[in-house]
Design a protein around this nucleic acid. Structure first.
Length: 113
DNA sequence: GGTTTGACCATAA
DNA sequence: CTTATGGCCAAAC
């Protein structure tokens, strides 16, 4: 009975989120739902956001994770939203007038890894 | 160990 | 197009 993972990271879920986000290449974006789906359940999208909220590692490109609408979610912290868009534009991601990203172009999937 | 919350998502109006 | 409601799951209190 396999209770051991390849990399047993303590927190469990949030660590897996970080692993997936680290795989996102520069110039691409992914959605919370996609990350959640990779982890096993598309319903844990909220948890993905929560995990990134508690993030403190500079090794994780959290700014490459946006919501399914292609927009940056802001829940009380607008500063992060602006920073995120700036970082993405630095990597080549383009925002439209509504501040949204064309997911058809920049959406990244693990299979593309 | 139950309750609350949360960077979401899908559907309905 | 926007706004409102339900749900789902894991971590924090």
């Amino acid at each position: 009975m396999p209770d051991e993972d390849e990399r047993v990271i303590r927190p469990g879920f949030n660590a897996r989120v970080y692993e997936v986000v680290r795989r996102v290449p520069a110039g691409r974006v992914t959605t919370y739902g996609d990350v959640a789906a990779v982890l096993g359940s598309p319903r844990v999208a909220r948890q993905v956001g929560f995990a990134l909220a508690a993030l403190a590692d500079d090794d994780v490109p959290w700014h490459r994770v946006i919501n399914a609408r292609g927009a940056i979610s802001v829940r009380g912290d607008t500063a992060r939203c602006v920073l995120q868009q700036a970082l993405l534009e630095q990597e080549g991601v383009v925002f439209d007038a509504a501040g949204r990203v064309d997911l058809s172009t920049f959406r990244w999937r693990p299979e593309d890894d």
